[in-house]
Amino acid sequence: MGEGTDMGNEFEGRWTRYYIYAGAAFFSFFVLLPLYVLIIIALGAPNQTVAAYYPALLPTKFTLSNFINAFRGTGILLESAFLKSLETAFIVAVIAILLGYHAAFGLSKLPFKISSLIIGVLFFSTMIPSITIAIPISETFLRLGLYDSSLGLALAQELLVLPLTIFILSGTLDAVPKQLEQQARVDGASFIRALYQVIFPLAVPGIVSAFLLSWLMSWDEFTFAIILSPVHPTLPILIYLDASARGNVLTAASFSLLVTIPVIVLTIILSKFIRAGYLTSGITG
C-alpha cells in the first residue's frame, strides 16, 4: 500500500491511517490500564484504594507509606527473596549461555537430519508440563540436598530456558558468514579457537538477548519455584503469599511494582531483539 499514487488511493490511505491510530490507541489503553491500577494501589493512600468499598478511579492522595510499611513488615523476607530471585535468575542465564552456545555451535556443524532430530527432542521437552515433572524432581532434590536451594531451582528452571536459548543462538550462528570460520581454519585456527575467538564476538548480540530473556523467564517463574523452593521463596512466591494467604494486598502491590519496573525496562530494551523467529525456529527447523 504505502503512498497512494492516485486520488482514490490517497483517500483510502488516509482513512486507513485513521483506523490504525484509533485501533492502536484503543489497545494501548487496555495495555496500560492494569499497570495504572498497579501504580495507584502501590502509591495511593489506602483509604482511596484497597480500604475503600468502591476505590477511586482517579485517586487524589498519594503516599510512600505502603512501600515503607511493606519493607518494614517483611524486610528480611523481602531481602532474602530478592537475593534468591536475583541469584537464581543469574545462574539460569549463565548455564543457558554455557550449554546453549556450545550446543548451538555443535548443531550448526551436523547434517540437517540429525540436528533437526535433536532440536525436535529439545522442543518436545518444553511440552512436558512443569507441574508434572516438578514433583518427581522435588523428590530427587530432597535426596541430593538441592531442595529449597537457588542452584536446585535454577537447574529446574533451566529446562524452560535452555531449548529457547539454543533456538536463539542457532539463529544467531546461522547469520555469521561461513567464510569467516573457514578462513580462520585455513589460517590454522583449531575448531576450539574458531569457536571462541572468531565466532563468539560476532554472536554477542544474540548471546546478550538470550541471556536477558533467560534471566527474565527465571525472574517470572512460578511453578517450579513454589514446589522446589517453598521455605525460602523467590519474589513471585512471596508476592503470591502476600496476596493470598497473608492478605497483605498493599505489600503484594508494592512488591509487584518493584518486580515490574526492571522487567519493563528490560522488555523495552529486548523489544528490538525479541523476534518471532526465535520462538518459531525450533519448529520450522
Binding site: 498497579l38 508476592i239 515490574t260 528490560l266 523489544s271
Partner: peptide, 16 residues
C-alpha cells in the same frame, strides 16, 4: 508498548 505485558510477571498480572 504492546510488548510490555510479555515482561510483566504472571503472578503480578494475577495480583493486578
Amino acid at each position: 508498548l504492546f510488548l510490555i505485558p510479555f515482561g510483566v510477571a504472571t503472578i503480578v498480572t494475577g495480583v493486578i
